[in-house]
Amino acid sequence: MLQMVVCVKQVPDTAEVRIDPRTNTLVRAGVPAIINPFDAHAVEAAVRLKEKYGGRVTALSMGPPQAAEVLRRALGMGADRAILLTDRAFAGSDTLATSYILARAIEVINRETPVDLVFCGKQAIDGDTAQVGPGIATRLGFTQLTYCMAIDAVDLEQGYIQVQRKLEGKREIIRGRLPALLTVVKDLNELRYPSLPALIRAARATITTWSKDNLDLDPAQIGLKGSPTSVRRIFAPPARPGGEIIPGEPRAAAVALVARLVQMKVIADK
């Protein structure tokens, strides 16, 4: 029986997020909110382990009340229960404060039944930091296994998990002691389409909501106040330097293009 917690974040669909060039503010109006894509793969991984070894999957999200939607998505994919951490006091948390709040919630779950595995996505597609997973692992003292692309084996008796990590041009096969925290990449699995009965169950399920009062928190470590980093300003990325259309017949154009790329040293001349 594996006790698993999956951290899922609700994120804006970043393809549609833009900066208003006049006000330098984020244009979020009308941008759909989705489950962080990596987190969907994390839910899938946990559900597959449950099917193989038995156990229970808790989906955990911190966010505004609307974040309940991504928890329902996780329930539809096979999570057994969902907990939403929502409180005005959590707003403005950076990764240090976010990992603190999530770790505190996991500690509450851990007191019910000891947690064997925590899953996070490799990174959130909005903040893009990849820091919350390592933060949670560090706070809980769990083995930290980032960038997992395959789970080879879990051995509860021996107390280890073997995974494959995706590194720069390399794959690392590594065995870690339980309990462990995994951050996952998309190669880990293919998402399943939720069945209709699962979706109906998810729509009807109650989502447990915890505020700061349900967690044993130091108020100085949460929200804006508890966040050492602060965003001084946001702005639109500089436009890409004006492109050059290379004219001419295919052969002439190809010769000119190759000359430019070789000269820029982006493609090595041998």
């Binding site: 990849a130 933060g135 960038y147």
Partner: peptide, 23 residues
């Protein structure tokens, strides 16, 4: 901001309780 650097920095910043800016 390599896989190793991100793996390590997230743990170190948390131990130190300091801010970490990514990438």
């Amino acid at each position: 901001a390599t896989s190793l650097g991100r793996d390590l920095s997230g743990a170190v910043a948390t131990f130190l309780g300091t801010g970490l800016t990514a990438d």
